Structure formats: C-alpha cells, structure tokens
Amino acid sequence: MSRPCSLKDIAQECGVSVSTVSQILKNSPRDYSSEQTRAKVRETARKLGYRRNYGYRLMRGQKTMTVAIMASMEHMRSEEHVSKLVIELMSCFDHHGYASYFNTFVYDAQENLNKVRDLLARGVECFVAVGAPVGHKELEREIEEQGGYLISTSREFRNHIFMSDLSASRRIVCYLYERAGENFCFFPCSNPLPGRFAALKEVFKHLSQEELLRRHTCRCISYKECRGNYPDFAFREGYAATEKACGMNPRLRGFFYENDGFALGGIAYLVQSGRQIGRDVWVAGYNNDSAIRNAPYPVSSVDHDWEHHAPLFVEKALKNEPCQTVLDTTAHIREYIPGTNRIHEIDFVSSEEEYESSK
C-alpha cells in the first residue's frame, strides 16, 4: 500500500520549498508566490492525491479550508441552472484551495438543522444555500452563533445575492403581448405565484388580479407533486395544461411557462396540433435550459447567468463580507431570421420603451 502524499512530495515535484507549498495550500496571507507557482502547486497536489488532515487542523484550532454548498434535491433535478450554479461554485472554491461538501435540504426543519450542525462539527467555515429551506432562520442563527458565514440566493437570508426576474420577465411578456395581444396565457406552477407574475400585472394594467388570473393564466401542477422523473413529469404537465388552455381559447397565440420543462411539453402539443412556433404562435419558458437553447424552434427564455455570478458568491464568502446584492436575470428573445428557417436572438424593445426613449 503506497504512503499518502506529503507536502515534501509536492515541493520536490514543483521545485519549491515545503513552506511555500504549505502557504499556498492554506491560502496564507503571507504567501507571496506568483499566480503561476500557485496554480502549479495546486495542480500537482491534485495529481498526487494530497489530502489535508482535517482532524489535526480542528484539534489545533486551525481553519479547515472547507465550505458547504446546500440545495434541495428537487431543485437539483428540476432546475438545470441550480446544478450549473453548484458546479460553478465548487470550481471557484477549488480554485481558491477550498474543499467543498455538497448536502441536500429536505422538508424537515430539524433534519436540516442536524445536517448543518454535523457540517459545523467537521469544521466547515462557510455555507452557500441555494434557495431557502424549511427552518432557514434557525439554520442562519446556528451558523452565525458558531462563527460561520452563510450566503444564499434567497433574500430570506441576511447575506444574499438575489436574481430578480422582474425586468427580464417583463421584456418577455411585452414581446409576447405585442405578437399575440390579448390571446396570451401564462402557465404558473408555484404557490404562491412566482415573481414573474408581477411582470404580467405591469403589462396588463387594465385588468384586476382576479381578471388576469381568470383570463390569462392556466395553472400547471407543482413540481413538489412529482414522485418520479421530473423532466417527464414537467413535459406531461406542460402538454396537458397547454391542451386545456387551447381548448378554452383556441385563439391563443402567446404562451409563457414558469420554467422550460413545462414549455417543452407545451411545444409538443402546439406542434402536434398544427401550430407553427415562431410564425403563428410564440412561446417562452424560464431558465434558458440547453433543450430550449438548442430547440429547432425559436423559443424565448430567461437566464440566471450563474457562470458569471458564482465568483461573487465565493468572493463574499471567503471575505466574510455583508452582502445584500440584487442582480437582474437576462431575457433571450428568439425569432426566425426573416425569410429563413434559421433562428437568432433579437434585441427586442417594446413600443412603450421606444415611446419613453423618444420623449
């Protein structure tokens, strides 16, 4: 059985001193090595299978250089952008020399609290929560009392980087409204209604909320009711809700779904019923999943751009800085290039925005 890799092994491989390797791997403020040397040492440590002795560090009261990323399994399965964020966070923390735990939230406050306590006992220094789990206030209090740092994608937590969907959703709704007019339907599945419903209320100002719900929405069954494969569930529910909505109003031409999974089912029904997406009906989803980006039809969507924002989470977490940041999601509006079957993104400006800019 081969012996574990040591700091000396890494130092010999890289041609530097043992103390230099030690300073780099623990992100010491006294490390004055070049970025090239840091990258070489970390890559060599990975290749040689170096493992930190966390038990020794805990006994000595030293930092363990570990973080925990937590998300619900339902969101991991149902939201492609959540998986993307988790991967980006792990990659960014790894670049800074930190090891990452990944753990899942459940619908039980005490079990979530027990998971956090276990991670704290292992020496985890900071937590990134994707969403707000059951019992989130107790989790925040426990982490802060133990000297840890917590940042989340949810404004339910004190430290957060929140992606607002209002501006991007409003752009999508304006686009669909200008194409479809009153023959428009929004397909929510969350309860309470998602933030993008506020965009509908801004565009359909002439309607009360009750009228808006009655005339321009058709509810899908929530992902929380899913007991099997989520993509199949979302596809079936999107298909069924679209069939129901078109049965109630055959003149529907604009379709906006709470997420891309439901949109894919809706697209299937629309195509099978003889409608031409991007020509006589217009469709938008939410999350800008790969299936939508690569669809053979022009389907609009909203992107969280996590690959650009993940480094900000890591920066705030490693500096233990207070953070109440709100960023905008991005609308991707797609159409056929006129006279062709090729798809492109357009820089859509609503007639209302044109009027405001001309004043």
Rank of each mutant, 00 (worst) to 15 (best):
E210T: 08
Q209D: 14
A168Y: 04
G181S: 04
P192Y: 10
A240M: 12
Y177C: 03
E211P: 00
R227W: 06
G181F: 00
K201A: 15
F184T: 01
G238R: 05
E178L: 03
Y230C: 06
F197G: 06
D232K: 07
I172K: 00
E202N: 08
P231W: 13
C185I: 02
E211T: 02
K224Q: 10
C218L: 10
F204G: 08
N183S: 09
T217S: 14
T242L: 05
P194H: 07
H216G: 08
S190A: 13
R236I: 02
L200Q: 07
L193K: 10
I172S: 06
I172H: 01
L207R: 07
Y223M: 15
S164N: 15
E211G: 06
K205E: 10
S190R: 15
R171E: 14
E210N: 06
S169F: 04
C189Y: 14
F235C: 12
K201S: 12
P231V: 05
M163H: 14
L176C: 03
R236C: 07
L176I: 00
R219C: 13
Y239R: 11
D165Q: 13
R227I: 05
I221N: 08
F162C: 09
M163P: 00
F184A: 08
E182P: 00
S222G: 14
R214C: 11
E182K: 11
R170G: 04
S164D: 15
A168P: 00
Y239S: 04
H216T: 01
R236S: 13
N183G: 02
S169W: 03
S190P: 00
A240T: 02
D232R: 10
S167L: 12
L207E: 07
E237N: 08
F204K: 07
F197K: 04
G228W: 12
A234T: 03
C226P: 01
